[in-house]
Design a protein around this nucleic acid. Structure first.
Length: 313
DNA sequence: AAGCTGAACAACCGCAGGGCA
DNA sequence: ATGCCCTGCGGTTGTTCAGCT
């Protein structure tokens, strides 16, 4: 199918926005509201493309934007969420009121990514490498920050669709059957628990199914058909994980079977195995790397438990 | 003081998904 | 079912600025 270009580039301003442009855009949005970005520049009298206007508004002009340094709490949250979500900056930003995905992405790329990388290198090699962020005053915050937990590749791949109904397909083997049943038990136990959103991928027949992710030679292949329901990742992040059991603190950053997993791409952007609560892995005695996953979930849970306070500020 | 280097961040670009006609 | 539009997302680039030599 054809696609018209986002905007005709001729005669449009590019680069940094001027104060006047900012004012025009802000005034227009105050009057007409957000949206209709494509037509906005023409109506507002801006020589910008709609995309540019949207970006400028969302990343800079919005009144609820929180400017200033990323706090340690925010930094910690970013690291933890990134560990689980990967480069899902918009999702991460959704947990950081006033912060934009662009800001978080930039901050990650310039600070946290390096720190995490350095930390990972240290873990793998046992040697302390000098980081690149040591001298600049801009990086004082980074230097003062505590060691960042190792970036693990346990990333939840998310898609924003809902799931409310679960269908148990015929078990293909014992382990898969067990997992299915546990998943159902857990889903009913925690109500709105919404890992489904993160765990499932949509199949072509309109149903959703767990993607048979192969990790460490273990197939997680089982099918759970889900209709769009009420579950979102945000709900997952808001879920009361305490219902899942007593979670310890301090699990983030623990080094587990990395040696067994180092065939994984360290980049979180690659497809990653889903994470599951403990109940899904009573069979976890097999060495298939799930302890990391569980650790991540626990970490997220404990973190979110303690993190809601400041988030609510 | 001038040039160089790297960090920080704003902005751009291309792609994908959803909605609608 | 198809095609188009709109929007959002993530990766990348460009610019500015501070620190260092």
């Amino acid at each position: 199918m054809g696609r018209s270009p986002c905007c005709a580039k001729e005669g449009l301003n590019r680069g940094a926005w001027t104060a006047l442009e900012d004012k025009i855009l802000t005034d227009y949005i105050k009057v007409h509201g957000e949206g209709r970005w494509r037509n906005l520049p023409k109506k507002a009298g801006l020589k910008r493309c709609g995309k540019s206007c949207r970006l400028r508004w969302l990343n800079y002009l919005r009144p609820d934007i929180k400017r200033g340094n990323i706090t340690r709490d925010e930094e910690d949250l970013i690291v933890r969420l990134h560990r689980l979500l990967g480069n899902r900056w918009s999702l991460i930003a959704g947990r950081l009121p006033g912060r934009t995905d662009n800001e978080i992405k930039n901050y990650w790329n310039t600070n946290l990514g390096k720190k995490v990388q350095a930390h990972t290198t240290t873990i793998f090699t046992g040697t302390k490498k000098k980081t690149t962020t040591t001298t600049s005053t801009k990086n004082i915050r980074a230097v003062e920050s505590p060691p960042i937990p190792k970036l693990e590749s346990r990333v939840v791949r998310t898609k924003a669709f809902r799931c409310s109904k679960v269908f148990l397909g015929p078990p293909q083997n014992k382990m898969e059957q067990h997992t299915d049943n546990d998943a159902m038990a857990l889903a009913s136990k925690v109500g709105n628990f919404s890992t489904q959103k993160a765990l499932v991928s949509e199949s072509y027949d309109g149903q959703s199914s767990f993607t048979p992710e192969k990790e460490n030679g273990i197939s997680l292949d089982f099918t759970v058909n889900l209709n769009p329901g009420e579950l979102f990742l945000s709900e997952l992040l808001n879920s009361d994980f305490s219902q899942l059991g007593d979670f310890d603190d301090g699990l983030v950053g623990e080094v587990s079977n990395d040696e067994n997993n180092n065939n994984n791409d360290s980049s979180p952007s690659s497809d990653q195995p889903p994470f599951f609560p403990d109940e899904l892995f009573e069979w976890k005695g097999s060495d298939c790397g799930q302890s990391d996953v569980i650790s991540d979930l626990r970490s997220l849970a404990s973190f979110l438990d303690c993190g809601e306070n400041w988030l609510a500020e």
